[in-house]
Structures are given as C-alpha cells and as structure tokens.
Amino acid sequence: MALTVNVTAAVRVLVPLLPVTAAAVLLGGCVAPAPRAAPPAATPAVSPAAAGRAAGELEEDYRNVIRDVLPSVVQIEAGQGIGSGVVWDERGHIVTNAHVVGGERSFRVTVATGEEVLAARLVSSYPEQDLAVIRLDAPPPGLKPARFGDSSKVEVGQIVLAMGSPLGLSGSVTQGIVSATGRTVSEGGAGGGTGATIGNMVQTSAAINPGNSGGALVNLAGEVVGIPTLAATEPGMSGGPAPGIGFAIPSSMVRTIADQIVRTGRVTHSGRAALGIAGRTVLDDDYRPAGVAIAEVARGGAAADAGLRAGDIITRVGDTDITTITSLLEALASAKPGDRVPVTYLRDGRRGTVTVTLGEM
C-alpha cells in the first residue's frame, strides 16, 4: 500500500568541498626554520583476509536475522492494495498499518515464502496511530510470531533491515541504519493515508517503498523495533520519493496498541495526549496560518477544565508556536497524558495563558 509523507523542513543542497591549494607567501627577512613535527604514528593496516572475515561475519549476521524473522512477515491483499504485516501470535493475529487495511474487512494473506494464501478478517483498526490487527481464519501449524524489541534502546547508527512486500515483491529485504529517533511526522490523508500525526517515530535509511507499509524494521538481534509506515517525498522533485528517508512506528507503541486490540477488540488507552477540543486553522489578514480556533470544547476534557472555551484561538503550547491544526497535533504527539503544559490563546483580542493538564486521546 503506497503512502508518503511530505517533510516540511527545507531540503538543503550540499555543495562538494573543493580542495584548496595553499600558496606560501615569503616575507622579507630570514627566520629560523620551524622544527619538524614528528611523523604521525603509523596506523596498523587491516589485512584483506581480516577485512574479508569481518565482512563475512556481518553477512552471516544478516542471513541469520533474515532466516529467523522473514517467516513472520506476510503480504496482505486488501481490495486492490497490497501491504505487509507481522505475525503477532500463534493464534493468527497479524499487526499492520491502518492505511493498509483501509475500509476492508476481509483479506488475503501470503506468507513470506509464498507457499500459502490464507483468508483473514479485521479485528480492529486504530487510524489515530495508523495501526491495525487482522486475524487469520485458519492459522497454519507452526505459525511463527515475531519478537518485538524495546524501541527505547534504538540508537542512531544502528544497523536495521526492513522486511516486507515492496511493489508486491513478497519477502523482500533492504538494509540501512537508524538515521534518527523521536521524529514527529504527519501523514497525508490522500492516497489511502489516515492523516494521523505520529510521534517518536524511527527514521531509517533502509529503503521503504509502496508495499513495505506494515512490515518489520528489524535489528541484528532479530527483534522488530518498528513498523515501516512512511516514505518521505521531496517537494522539489514534484512529490517524488526522497531516497533514504523512511519512518517506522516504534515497537513500544505497536505493543501498546496491538496488545489492547488482541485482548479486548479495541483500543481503550492510547497513551496519547489530548486537549479535548475540536478546532480549525485560522488565517491572519495576509492569509497566513495564525493559530487554531476552538470550535468545540469537550465537557470534562482537559481544555474545559483549564477554562478554555469555544472561540479562543490557541497560538502556543509549551515551547511550540501553533499556527495550524497540524502543528497543534505535532505538539501534542510529543507529550503524554497527565503532562501539565502552558497554553497561550487569544480571546476577544487579548492574550492569555493557562496551564492545562493533558487528557488522553
């Protein structure tokens, strides 16, 4: 299932550094020659044989991880779309993206080896976090659940593998590193996207292509540390893909959401902060986004308890300026229920600030 996200930060063009030739300028007069610096200590050379052994050991690590995890990654056909999924348990539960299942309720699931095509049905979808769980009607013997790791221990530079069905090529594997952690990304609602704003995502250089969504981002210990979900697009390339910039939902959030769906059939505690309002972006006199006007305040919600009311225009939450609905959602995505944050607003042209104890979505 194809899904891309526009990265709002400007893309910088890097100019290669050219070698600079330094010319010696001689000044009149004689000076004593500077003492020669001691030659640098020689760096021990790595023999081709040692380098070959190191490469061979890394390749063997890759093969071991792929043999261990790939049987737990499936291809999901949802209507006319194709995405990926990860086996959650031996009872046939499979976790994937909400935008992969879309509005469908029945699916065809193909295991990584392509030997079996199985029927599955939707258990529940949670578009707010772009996660869903489906279940096989008749789980085959030996169905192998994946091991989900602790995404809080993921570090920049860590080698990861992305497994899934890019462009319908089931059982495909790409390799990269963790490029960044803690990203907050807003999906586009077009092209099947849920429009969700997701916090604490893992950014990776492993290739994420249409069909990878819902698959597995795996460390070299064979643990799933994220669910590949988004591929960035570069505005300067007519919305084309920006190579090496993909995003995965962290495994800690996947466990939180999937476990509730499997146990109760729905999400009861999202772990996501909420203000308890309905709002819309407002524009200033120059037609620029200037804040979020509160259209409705939920009774008993965080905003109502703090004294905010319909008609107020939110301009800042914590240390973040608020200009649009998206910027408000991104500010809340990095917070937790129960956090106390200052909220600045305009009411009848006057500025005010209240401290809001955030609720839960």
Rank of each mutant, 00 (worst) to 15 (best):
N200D: 07
A273V: 12
G157F: 05
A290T: 11
D150Q: 12
M253I: 02
L136D: 13
V95Q: 12
T204F: 03
I82L: 03
L27E: 14
S238V: 06
L275Q: 04
A333P: 09
A306I: 14
A221L: 14
I208H: 00
A112M: 01
A207F: 13
V87Y: 00
G192N: 13
A34Y: 00
G83V: 04
A290C: 08
L169C: 00
I325F: 08
P243W: 06
L3S: 11
V100L: 02
A303P: 05
P33K: 04
A303E: 06
L27F: 14
E187H: 08
A274N: 04
Y345Q: 07
V262R: 10
I245P: 02
G307A: 02
C30L: 15
R63I: 05
R340P: 09
P40H: 10
V123T: 15
L70D: 06
M361C: 01
L70P: 08
I82N: 03
Q80C: 03
G79K: 15
T204Y: 05
N200S: 07
P141A: 09
G240T: 06
G188I: 05
E187N: 06
E296I: 01
V185K: 03
V73G: 07
F247H: 01
G195K: 13
E104N: 15
N209P: 15
T113Q: 04
L27R: 13
L131A: 13
D68K: 08
N212W: 11
E116L: 15
G276H: 04
A162G: 08
T113G: 05
E104W: 08
G193D: 11
E155L: 14
G103Q: 08
G226P: 10
